[in-house]
Write a protein that binds this DNA or RNA. Structure first.
Lengths: 118, 118
DNA sequence: AAGTCAGTTTGATGGGCATCAAACTTTTGC
DNA sequence: GCAAAAGTTTGATGCCCATCAAACTGACTT
């Protein structure tokens, strides 16, 4: 189980994140990751109508922009949103984009937030 | 004084807005409009280091994406952010982008420097 | 060892886009 | 009317990018 190289949090650039999310296929992948959490690549791009090599390019674009994190387990690669990093660097941006895409995200709720909600 | 054609609020597409904002020049123009409000085109793109025809293309890109509104008064054209429309359609998105854009990318800076942002 | 599975890389293609330069349009001022 | 100012449009250039197809890699299976 090894992690692939990603940009450090402080190296994530706003314009690159916006550019990454401005492609419909990549936005859809991002939404799926937000809803379902960690997914392998094939699942993330299932029924998107793009060739697997095209999808692979999108995975790379998302990873290099700092939007997703990829780790390999066996012969599968699992992607997940870099939620903490993105929220730290660009507070509210990811939530606004996901909400704008009209598909609410299932965030892990901290104990603190859970208390405040009750 | 006449208004130029713009997309209706409900026709503003998320991916197009993200794409429009993903260009550094257009993002800078957007930030200036957010800070200073309505500005004419030349002022908005002052000292950006791009030719006026290039700037004009960016105005169009921002307008067609639904980010800005343009009205002509005399021989000047004034641009302004479509804040209300954007907030209605994508709540929190514009604010998150503007807030994110205020953070310098690499070195963490003091609040003093952050306030003196150019 | 051979085959399969998951995903990447490479090559080719077509389209879009950021840029500048030059010509054009519209409005204002002399 | 003529010229200047403010943008736009058009043309040219070069780059980047989304896409597919085919070859490749690394890991598991039989």
């Amino acid at each position: 189980m090894r992690l692939l190289p990603h940009p450090a949090t402080e190296d994530i650039e706003l314009t690159e994140v916006l550019r990454a999310l401005s492609d419909p296929v990549r936005l859809e992948i991002t939404i799926r990751l937000a809803i379902a959490g960690e997914m392998n690549c094939t699942t993330a791009a299932d029924h998107l109508g793009v060739h697997k090599s095209t999808a692979s390019h999108h995975y790379r674009a998302l990873r290099e922009a700092g939007v997703v994190e990829t780790k390999q387990e066996g012969r599968l690669k699992y992607m997940s949103l870099r939620r903490t990093d993105l929220d730290a660097r660009f507070p509210g941006l990811l939530d606004a984009v996901l909400h704008a895409a009209n598909r609410p995200s299932r965030r892990p709720v901290s104990a603190h937030q859970a208390d405040a909600r009750a």
